[in-house]
Amino acid sequence: MKIDLSGKTAIVTGSTAGIGYAIARGLAQAGATVVVNGRSPAGVESAVSRLRRELADASVRGVAADVGCIAGCAALVAAEPAADILVNNAGIYGPQDFFEIADEEWTRFFEVNVMSGVRLSRAYLPGMLQRRWGRVLFLSSESALNIPVDMIHYGFSKTANLSVSRGLAKRVAGSGVTVNAILPGPTLSDGLEAMLKEEQEASSLSMEEVAASFVMKHRPGSLIQRAARVEEVANLVVYAASPQASATTGAALRVDGGVLDSIA
Rank of each mutant, 00 (worst) to 15 (best):
M1I: 01
I3W: 08
D4F: 02
L5A: 00
K8C: 11
T9Y: 03
A10Y: 01
A10K: 00
V12I: 15
G14S: 11
S15E: 15
G18V: 01
I19V: 15
Y21C: 12
R25K: 15
R25H: 15
L27M: 07
A30D: 05
G31W: 01
G31I: 05
V34G: 04
V34F: 08
V35H: 05
V36G: 01
G38I: 03
S40Y: 11
S46N: 02
A47Q: 06
V48H: 12
L51R: 08
R52P: 06
R53L: 04
R53F: 02
L55G: 05
D57M: 14
S59P: 02
V60H: 08
G62Q: 08
V63C: 01
A64W: 05
C69K: 02
C69S: 07
C69W: 00
I70Y: 12
I70D: 15
G72I: 02
A74R: 00
A78W: 05
A78E: 15
V87R: 00
N88W: 14
G91N: 03
G94P: 13
Q96H: 11
D97V: 06
E100H: 09
A102S: 14
A102R: 14
D103Y: 13
T107W: 13
T107A: 12
T107V: 13
R108P: 07
F110C: 10
E111L: 04
E111H: 10
V112K: 12
N113K: 10
N113E: 02
N113V: 03
M115A: 11
S116A: 15
R119C: 04
S121W: 09
S121K: 05
R122D: 06
A123W: 12
G127C: 04
G134N: 12
G134I: 03
R135T: 01
R135D: 00
S143H: 09
A144K: 12
A144C: 13
L145T: 10
P148S: 10
I152S: 03
Y154D: 06
K158E: 03
S165M: 09
S165H: 04
K170N: 14
K170P: 07
A173K: 07
A173P: 10
V177A: 06
T178N: 15
P184I: 09
T187S: 05
L188H: 10
S189P: 12
G191M: 14
G191P: 01
L196T: 09
A202G: 15
E209G: 05
V210W: 04
A211D: 11
A211M: 02
K217L: 01
P220Y: 09
I224E: 08
R226K: 10
A228G: 12
E231M: 08
E232S: 02
L236E: 04
L236P: 02
Y239Q: 13
Y239W: 12
A240P: 09
Q244R: 10
Q244T: 03
A245D: 11
S246M: 03
T249E: 07
G250D: 11
A251E: 04
L253A: 06
R254V: 03
G258N: 14
V259N: 00
